[in-house]
Design a protein around this nucleic acid. Structure first.
Length: 840
RNA sequence: GCCCCUGUGGCGGAAUUGGUAGACGCGCUCGACUCAAAAUCGAGUUCCGCAAGGAGUGCCCGUUCGACUCGGGCCAGGGGCACCA
């Protein structure tokens, strides 16, 4: 019996003592940087972490066995709101809470035997990390990639903080439940939009990323091309004589029947000062919620300003100007022209306010006369009712209007982006202090480098809502580094996504006096394989790509893309259980009897529901630690890799972990007590040898492709073949090779059996077995015999048999003879080494 | 609303370029061992049928000698984005 309770810790200690997994930056071996997304130290490791890190671990161990120099580090994404929430709820300090969690989770990770280089461990909440982040922030600031502006935020008036959109639920703060206000705050931004084009173009080269993620990023960046042009106001107002609009459909310009500006547009704001009705309308727009659901159901509302704009292609044609609640200030120019016939939203608006609807695109000539009623036509077609554009396709019309606008000087072809600059200010304590000092005389002044890090003060209280840095008695107050006058520190901290935008660089190189050493970082980067949850497909991965490119632009690092290979793994799910009253029950509260489930305590029947993402609310979570106690690290790791393809969800089940445990014991019996033999076998041996080498090749290929479930299946097949084989020297070799093949997945058992076999050294240091190419090809193949495409018989033939031979063999098959009833086939298709299809 | 992904036995899932559908695991059935149970080992396990045979990869149509795989049209589940001009 293999006893993980004693073996696991023993081998973990052996690896640590031999410093097996510490990466060597000076090694001449080819490098491989394997990285899993670092965890937030929330308290305990959950099963999703185990799956994530097991995958990376198998890859890292495999690459090491191939003779590569592997960097496989681990750290902590340690800043963030949960620590502050814990501080408020439990009266603890966020730092203490976080560091305690790190200690707990580190011990939990260690018990799983991951091949991690702990010497490079980092936590983003420590000054020796965030101080360097401050230096990088200032480098970007000096390069003009950081700026400050007023921007509208979701403000929770009770917690006195800014909320992210996801934290606003039904218009209320997720913690306080107070109605969220929109407020203008001065915030720091990073100029990610400067990189929009290259972040988009760069996606093409990321061929080791899932298409899904590349597509999501592409949509997020949202490039759209069109025309930006100027609407002239009929009569100037408040110093404005016109404004710019953006459209992707300049071809429909003769279909326009109104212009609309955003409630936040400067013209609207200026006009509202003298127009109480407009001011009231603007207030009404602001009151609307910010959630997706509210926006969707919000009525399209407009306010007729009474102003008129001049059509750019006909000075005698004027259009009414509305302020409309659906026009966004931060997309395009904050103003549009409305073409109701070919935009549903504009159509709804036009119907509501009685504006004309003119069709200008028709799919067929007959359709030109048909009015657009309730559904806007957005399909392809040719232009009609459009004067000199008539007869052009929509595409040609777009080109024609743009070139005319450019020639006549009233507009230009341009590109609009959905991507906005990255607002990084957070009114929170537990984050990287923004290293800026606000001086009354000099304005914002960077903290001098020799004064970094700007360290978070420890003596803060969370008894009151709001940012403790703001009300700290002394921390804010400093002299201006430039003029010496009275000044105060920036009390906002950086978004936690900044922390995770460069940690992989710090893993590659961590000098004390700089964020990283360029040469060392470039030696390891890019990350060869990055593994994590798909929930980071956009924000984290986009920010990290941006940060890396920004460092390249300012000449700090010659790397374009941080992550060469990306893999997004599925979630771990579990069946759910509900009692009669609808309350959720946890897996350990229920008992199974045949197909029925019962509540253990009350004996009442329980409904087993669908398999869902583990969540506290549905009580279907599984804590990995007791499972490791019971089954050992290897069985847990094995189960995480078995059955489900890694990109899909993995349903956790008791039966599954038990199956993994039984296989561990079976492996142990096979390997530790294998009769060694030097006997040469016969035919059976050659079959086993062939199986062995095929398995070596396919397990390697499958690990390489992260197809762990397939690698596991290959190993089962080999184990089955070994079990059936009589003792011989081939069988002995196969057992040894089997151990090597399972060692990345079940490393403790592999070490234990390796040592039981009398092998010297650690299996972790052993070389991956080599497949003999000569043994990968079969010398005999099974040929399928089909009649009219239906399988009727199979036959065995030497590999490479001639077509004629195969045809003859097929025709003489008893079953074929019976079906053909003596008639010759009309046609014979022979696929060498595969099949013969007789068409009757 | 727009964009994307997925759909194969009781379950998780395999299946180079279209070429023997269901590898491997779980579960289940029968048997061996045992006083008994667990563990272990052996046999079986897509469905219908005693069999011969037939049907079968969400549904419908098509291309092909041959379709899980390619094309068209649906349906269902999941994900992303969303007053984006």
């Amino acid at each position: 019996r293999f006893d993980p309770a004693s073996a696991d810790a023993r081998w973990q200690a052996a690896w640590e003592a031999a410093r097996v997994f510490e990466a060597d930056s000076r090694s001449a071996k080819p490098k491989s940087f394997v990285l899993e997304m670092f965890p937030y130290p929330s308290g305990r490791i959950h099963i999703g972490h185990v799956r994530n890190y097991t995958m990376g671990d198998v890859l890292a161990r495999y690459k090491r066995m191939l003779g590569m120099n592997v960097l496989h580090p681990m750290g902590w994404d340690a800043f963030g709101m949960p620590a502050e929430n814990a501080a408020m709820e439990k009266g603890v300090h966020p730092g203490g809470w976080t560091r305690q969690n790190i200690a707990t989770m580190k011990a939990q990770l260690k018990r799983l035997g991951f091949a991690l280089d702990w010497s490079r461990e980092l936590a983003t909440c420590e000054p020796d990390y965030y101080g360097h982040e401050q230096a990088l922030f200032l480098a970007l600031y000096e390069a003009g990639l950081v700026y400050r502006r007023e921007s509208e935020v979701n403000w929770d008036p009770v917690d006195m903080t800014v909320l992210a959109n996801e934290q606003v639920i039904d218009g209320k703060g997720w913690r306080s439940g107070a109605p969220v206000e929109r407020r203008k705050l001065s915030q720091w931004f990073l100029k990610i939009t400067d990189f929009a084009e290259e972040l988009l173009d760069g996606l093409d080269a990321l061929d080791q990323w899932p298409d899904k993620v590349r597509l999501m990023q592409e949509n997020w960046i949202g490039k759209s091309q069109g025309l930006k042009f100027r609407f002239q106001l009929e009569r100037p107002v408040d110093g404005f004589d016109g404004f710019e609009v953006f459209t992707t459909r300049p071809d429909t310009i003769f279909g326009s029947s109104f212009a609309a500006i955003s409630p936040d547009h400067p013209i609207a704001l200026a006009s509202a000062e003298k127009d109480a009705a407009l001011a009231a309308f603007l207030a009404e727009c602001k009151a609307g919620g910010t959630t997706a659901a509210e926006l969707e159901t919000a009525e399209k509302k407009g306010f007729d300003t009474g102003l008129r704009v001049i059509h750019p292609l006909d000075p005698s044609w004027t259009l009414p100007l509305y302020v409309a609640n659906f026009v966004l200030m931060d997309y395009g120019t904050g103003a549009i022209f409305g073409c109701p016939a070919h935009d549903q939203r504009d159509l709804d608006f036009a119907r509501k306010y009685g504006l004309p609807v003119t069709r200008v695109v028709a799919a067929t000539p007959e359709e030109a006369a048909e009015p657009v009623e309730t559904e806007a036509y957005v399909g392809p077609g040719r232009l009609v009712n459009s004067r000199f554009l008539d007869g052009l396709t929509a595409e040609d019309g777009i080109r024609e209007v743009i070139s005319r606008a450019e020639a006549e000087g009233w507009g230009e072809g341009t590109t609009a982006w959905r991507l906005r600059d990255w607002g990084v200010s957070r009114q929170r304590y537990w984050g990287t202090p923004i290293p800026i000092i606000h001086c009354e005389a000099c304005g914002p002044v960077p903290v001098p480098r020799d004064q970094l890090p700007v360290v978070l003060p420890e003596d803060v209280s969370f008894e009151m809502p709001g940012n403790p840095l703001d009300r700290h008695p002394s921390w804010r107050d400093v002299g201006c580094p430039r003029c010496g006058g009275s000044a105060r520190r920036e009390t906002d901290t950086l978004d936690t996504f900044v922390n995770s935008s460069w940690y992989f660089i710090r893993f590659a190189s961590q000098p004390a006096d700089a964020p990283f050493d360029r040469e060392a970082a470039e030696r390891w980067l890019p990350v060869d394989q990055y593994i994590g949850g798909v929930e980071h497909a956009i924000l984290h991965l986009l920010y990290a790509r941006f940060w890396t490119r920004a460092l390249k632009r300012i000449g700090r690092l010659d790397v374009e893309e941080p992550f060469q290979g990306l893999f997004t793994q599925g979630m771990v799910t579990h069946e759910t259980y509900q009692a009669g009253d609808g309350s959720w029950l946890s897996p350990d509260q229920v008992r199974r009897d045949g197909d029925d489930w019962f509540h253990i305590e009350s004996g009442r029947p329980v409904t087993a529901g669908r398999v869902e993402k583990m969540s506290k609310s549905k009580k279907n979570t599984v804590d990995p630690e007791p499972i490791v106690d019971q089954y050992g690290a290897d069985a847990v790791r094995w189960f995480m890799l078995s059955d489900s393809p890694p990109e899909r969800d993995l349903p956790w089940s008791e039966a599954g972990i038990e199956g993994a445990w039984r296989f561990m014991q079976r492996l142990w019996r096979m390997t530790s007590s294998a009769e060694t033999s030097t006997l040469l076998g016969g035919e059976e041996d050659r079959a086993l040898e062939r199986k062995l080498h095929q398995t070596i090749a396919s397990v390697g290929a499958n690990i390489e492709a992260l197809g762990f479930n397939k690698a596991v299946a290959n190993i089962y097949e080999l184990a089955n073949a070994i079990d059936k084989a009589p003792p011989s020297n081939v069988r002995t070799q196969a057992v040894e090779a089997l151990l090597l093949l399972v060692s990345p997945m079940a490393p403790h058992l592999a070490e234990e059996a390796w040592s039981a076999l009398g092998k010297s050294g650690l299996i972790a240091d052993a070389a991956w077995p080599k497949a003999n190419p000569a043994l990968l090809v079969q010398d005999e193949v099974t040929i399928a015999v089909q009649v009219n495409g239906k399988l009727r018989d199979t036959l065995t033939a030497p590999k490479g048999s001639a077509r004629e031979t195969l045809e003859e063999m097929a025709l003489s098959s008893e079953k074929v003879v019976r079906i053909l009833e003596g008639k010759p086939p009309r046609k014979v298709i022979v696929v060498p080494d595969r099949l013969v299809n007789l068409v009757a």
